[in-house]
């Protein structure tokens, strides 16, 4: 016989012995206070503004850094970071999630090829902004796509990020060889028709991508939290960056994209990103909802 819901509920209430604070707003823990102070210190000392990032993931990454740098607390990490710019650079690698992939979400690139490129072809010259480009995989993917569509020569790509180490890697265009099988598969799924190996030369454990892909690429330090628009663009792609921001900072970034984009310009986001909860939800219209590709209204 199954016990009734009432019996279970009673059993539960009898079993609760631990004292808990209930139905009160969650108070800031010491750790939460330390995290806020750390972000304030970083902003004042290094002008990087992480104060409006989504807290849960930021907290996990700082806690990892505290362990990795052998600190007893976030406060200790803060004291060290304030006095040691090199340590800040190391912490930045935790704060920025420098992970990427070529032709990540192949269907996104297929959609760019089929639905966005034909419109872009009608412009005599093009400007594209890859915001939060990390180590450059997205930039090289886009450059390959544009070359195959005959657009690369008349396109300027601005590839921006706040992490100088990532930007340096992006400029070099050298990616680990053990990732290439995945990238080649993604490339094919994205509608690529050539032999992927024609875009790189393999040496040791690395693939060095064709330098000429980057002839018209400008890699630059630019923060979506603190900097402003620098150019008019026809396409902005900003993938898997906005999820690390809170709503207010997402709105700031979307505002920059809206301002930068030309009339009916295109915006591409990460495959699970959404503008539905933003002030800008009515200022872009979905071109392909599933691929998160929008047009400026």
């Amino acid at each position: 016989m199954e016990p009734s819901a009432k019996v279970i509920a009673n059993r539960l209430n009898e079993s609760k012995v631990n004292e808990a604070r209930v139905n009160e707003p969650q108070r800031l823990s010491t750790l939460d206070i330390e995290l806020r102070l750390l972000m304030e210190a970083i902003y004042l000392r290094y002008s990087y503004d992480f104060r409006d990032y989504a807290g849960a993931s930021q907290k996990r990454r700082v806690v990892q850094a505290v362990r990795a740098f052998d600190c007893k607390s976030v406060s200790e990490l803060q004291a060290r970071v304030l006095h040691d710019p090199d340590l800040f650079m190391q912490l930045l690698q935790y704060l920025t999630i420098p992970v990427s992939e070529m032709f990540r979400d192949p269907s996104y690139y297929a959609c760019l090829r089929q639905e966005v490129i034909p419109v872009l072809k009608t412009y005599p010259s093009l400007k594209i902004w890859v915001a939060g480009c990390s180590t450059g995989e997205e930039v090289y993917s886009l450059a390959i796509l544009l070359r195959e569509e005959g657009l690369l020569d008349r396109t300027i790509i601005y590839a921006t990020d706040i992490n100088p180490q990532s930007l340096e890697k992006a400029r070099k265009g050298v990616f680990p060889l053990d990732r290439i099988a995945l990238y080649a598969k993604n490339y094919q799924e994205a509608g690529g028709q050539l032999d992927f190996s024609s875009y790189y030369t393999a040496a040791y454990n690395a693939a060095l991508f064709d330098r000429s892909l980057c002839d018209n690429v400008t890699f630059a330090d630019h923060s979506l939290s603190t900097d402003s628009v620098f150019s008019e663009t026809h396409l902005v792609t900003c993938r898997n960056v906005l999820i690390y921001f809170n709503r207010g900072l997402q709105d700031r970034a979307l505002g920059l994209f809206h301002e930068s984009l030309c009339h009916r310009g295109f915006l591409g986001l990460g495959s699970k990103e959404s503008i539905d909860f933003s002030d800008y939800s009515q200022r872009f219209e979905p071109l392909q909802k599933r691929e998160r590709i929008f047009r400026k209204l």
Binding site: Q26, A54, A56, S57, R61, I97, I243, S271, K272, F277
Partner: peptide, 21 residues
């Protein structure tokens, strides 16, 4: 939660996604 992303709940009781390992 959708596949491929971690799902967190923020203090403001909104969801957040992330691509940590």
């Amino acid at each position: 939660a959708v596949p491929g992303y971690h799902l967190s709940i923020e203090r403001e009781r909104v969801f957040s996604f992330s691509c940590e390992p």
